[in-house]
């Protein structure tokens, strides 16, 4: 077993804030739990869709959005637990090859909302290798500040589908909760993206 995730260098809130800094018109999907709180801590935004449930569904959800909006960057920020539940969706994305979709796995090797139990990545399961094996043309693992700085331009604009595992420290952080009402999240997103009549 390698280094424990409690001592990983990168901190998830700073990672997400750096990725979303100057996000422009990027469409952001956040998987349930800590990823949704991280995205909200970086600044609530009408073009955020933070999940409160639907575990395993963030990537497939973002794929439907990316196919519907091929001119816009679609970014998934999600945890290893959510992504492990929906591994098959990585195969589906790779087959569809949406150039505008990037997936960032905030991998702390823990189920953060349920007591910090280890996920399969703590035992060595490699999400980047899985994405590469599915056929993502770009798949990378980020462990340091320098690697993050190099990856951010790719996360924002590299031709995808692109997959990044960012190894982040296992830590309990203050909650930063987005709106909980799903119709509010949906309607404000559609208005911001499609115009007032779309809400």
């Amino acid at each position: 077993m390698s280094e424990k995730s409690e001592s990983f260098v990168l901190r998830r809130r700073a990672v997400v804030a750096a990725i979303l800094d100057g996000r422009g018109d990027t469409l952001v999907v956040a998987g349930l739990g800590s990823a949704a709180w991280d995205v909200t801590a970086a600044g609530d935004h009408p073009l955020n869709f933070p999940m409160w449930g639907a575990m395993g569904g963030s990537v497939a959800f973002a794929l439907g959005l990316a196919l519907a909006q091929p001119e816009r960057r679609v970014l998934v920020l999600s945890g290893d637990g959510d992504l492990l539940m929906g591994l098959g969706s990585l195969a589906t994305v790779a087959v569809q090859r949406p150039a505008n979709l990037a997936v960032v796995a905030l991998d702390n090797e823990r189920y953060g909302e349920t007591g910090m139990q280890e996920t399969a990545t703590a035992a060595g399961v490699d999400l980047t290798a899985i994405a590469r094996g599915c056929g993502f043309p770009l798949a990378r693992t980020v462990r340091s500040e320098a690697e993050l700085a190099a990856a951010i331009p790719e996360i924002r604009s590299a031709s995808g589908p692109a997959f990044f595992t960012v190894k982040v420290r296992a830590e309990k952080l203050p909650l930063a909760l987005p709106p909980k009402d799903g119709t509010v999240l949906k309607n404000r997103f559609r208005r911001a993206l499609l115009g007032e009549e779309a809400g």
């Binding site: 999907v29 569904g57 497939a60 439907g64 990316a66 519907a68 929906g86 997103f189």
Partner: peptide, 26 residues
């Protein structure tokens, strides 16, 4: 029509919700 083969049906539920969010019916 974009035909999307899935590995499990629940992904289709999520996919089509995302499609609607982006302005498409599925």
């Amino acid at each position: 029509i974009r035909a999307v083969g899935l590995t499990t049906e629940e992904d289709g539920v999520a996919l089509l919700a995302g499609a609607w969010l982006g302005g498409q019916r599925g």
